[in-house]
Design a protein around this nucleic acid. Structure first.
Lengths: 159, 159
DNA sequence: CTTGGTGCAAACATTTTGCAGCACA
DNA sequence: TGTGCTGCAAAATGTTTGCACCAAG
């Protein structure tokens, strides 16, 4: 079942409180790979580029199709292997909700993420709730734990 | 085909697995099945009973093993089919996190749910953040939507 | 009879892995 | 030359489905 992500109406870019040097994603990827003795191959570069162009949630399947459509012959195996590498590098993140497939999205600069999932249409809106950070830290502290990240899914209806 | 989700008006404490909870859930299940012209079979009853005894997150696999261990011969197919029925009836809910398998838990009168997932040990603590309801409603209203439910996963570390 | 339920095994969908050849330092 | 990367196909995993038979109304 195809997913139809729609972009947030008011996309307030999540800015880190601490001004940080903005490094291109491909640079981060290349650096991370190098640190592991791995290579920044054309296939991997192409996969990352395609993901960046998606600018939204995506599935492995969809990524593979788009790559093929663009004339890049990349195998399923390579796509899956690269997704894992990108996840390890912190460039993308798993975003699961109640669908059969794993969904991903870019994860850079995000401390958390909120998805509004329309239960009727299946549409997904990504957004942020700044207050949530404080809230989650509070609840974690109450358990003697430290929060590192969070994911919030809100099931909504337009009716 | 999907059953009408029934929200148990039962506002009992989230502290679960008291024996008295068994009866209401059975009743809810039986009623929901009946409304669809389906039957409350021994297998279905047994599956629900076993789930109630779990008192925590569980997987289909684990459920099947426990049933077999208890001497009840229930097939994999029946377990999966019954899980779907229970989910449609609003008795259990999908609780996904970054694992391969679907995880479930009882959904007794819960409007939302928060999981604290220990990234080191993999341990999961379920909890509730009451303030979250208000927060989620606010953010949804800002998008012209109505929140129906939510799931929050917080990735924590004990270090 | 008719409807629905079950177990079994096969089918499925997604993801992973083994392997042989290839590319580049 | 070695190490990693690739595509392909097979395997693995979790879940679903087709089918024949059974049970209850």
């Amino acid at each position: 079942m195809p997913l139809e992500p729609i972009k947030p109406a008011n996309s307030s870019a999540p800015q880190s409180s601490q001004p940080e040097l903005i490094e291109p994603l491909c640079a981060i990827f290349r650096r991370t790979l190098k640190a592991e003795g791995l290579k920044y191959t054309p296939e991997r570069a192409q996969i990352l580029d395609t993901i960046i162009e998606f600018d939204a949630l995506f599935e492995a399947d969809q990524l593979l199709d788009t790559l093929k459509q663009q004339g890049h012959s990349v195998s399923k195996a390579t796509v899956y292997r690269t997704l894992k590498l990108l996840e390890s590098a912190g460039i993308i993140q798993h975003v699961l909700f109640d669908r059969e497939q794993a969904h991903y999205q870019l994860a850079i600069g995000q401390t958390g993420n909120t998805l509004l999932i329309d239960v009727d249409s299946g549409q997904v809106i990504t957004t942020e709730i700044p207050e949530l950070i404080e809230l989650r830290n509070k609840i974690c502290a109450a358990h003697g734990l430290k929060a590192q990240a969070h994911k919030l899914q809100i099931f909504v209806s337009s009716k």
